[in-house]
Amino acid sequence: MNAIRLQIPAHADYIDLVRICLYGIASKMSYAYEDIEDMKVAVSEACNNAVIHGTPDPNEGVIDISFEPEDHALTIKVNNSGSEALATDVLDKAAPLPDADVSGLRVGGLGIYLMQALMDEVEVNALENGTEVVLKKYLNVASEH
C-alpha cells in the first residue's frame, strides 16, 4: 500500500490543504464528483474535531493525516496528538438522528453524524497520545471513467 501522509498544524486555517490533497488523490482514483465532495466534508469534520479537541496548546499541536488508496476504496486516517478522547462514548452516542426533534443535540455535536452519513465506514479509536478517526469510502465501480 502506498500511503500519502500529510502533517498540518492543529489550526483550522490548514484544513483546506487536506481537502485539496484529498481531491487530487480521489480524482486520480476516479471517484465520482459527488463522492469526492462527500469525502471532503467528512474529512473536514474529522480535522475540525482534531483542532477543537486536540492538544491544549494550538501552537504546539499537529494533525497527522494519511490517505491509503486501495484497489476499490480510499481510507483516510486523521490523528491528533491531544488528550485521549473517549472513542467508544463518541460512537455510542452517535445513534441515528431523531426524525423530528433535534433540540436535544448539543452544538457542534453533528460531526460524527455527518461522517457516518457521508462515508461507508467510520471508526474512532483512542490512542495513547490522542485520537484517530478512520474514514473509508468504497469506489463505486459504476462511477469509474
Rank of each mutant, 00 (worst) to 15 (best):
A3K: 10
R5N: 11
Q7N: 11
I8L: 05
A10N: 12
A10I: 06
I15Q: 05
L17G: 07
I20S: 08
G24Y: 03
E34S: 15
D35M: 00
M39D: 11
M39Q: 13
A42H: 13
V43Y: 07
E45L: 00
A46D: 12
C47H: 13
H53D: 11
G54T: 05
G61Q: 02
F67H: 02
F67T: 02
H72F: 08
T75N: 00
T75L: 04
A85E: 14
D89C: 09
D89I: 12
V90G: 00
L91S: 02
D92Q: 10
K93R: 12
A95L: 11
A95G: 04
P98I: 02
A100E: 15
D101G: 03
S103M: 02
G104Y: 07
L105G: 13
G108H: 10
G109T: 08
G109N: 09
L110C: 02
I112F: 02
M115K: 03
L118T: 04
E123T: 04
E123N: 13
N125G: 01
G130V: 07
G130A: 06
T131E: 01
T131N: 01
L135P: 06
K136S: 01
K137T: 08
Y138N: 11
N140S: 05
N140M: 03
A142P: 00
S143E: 15
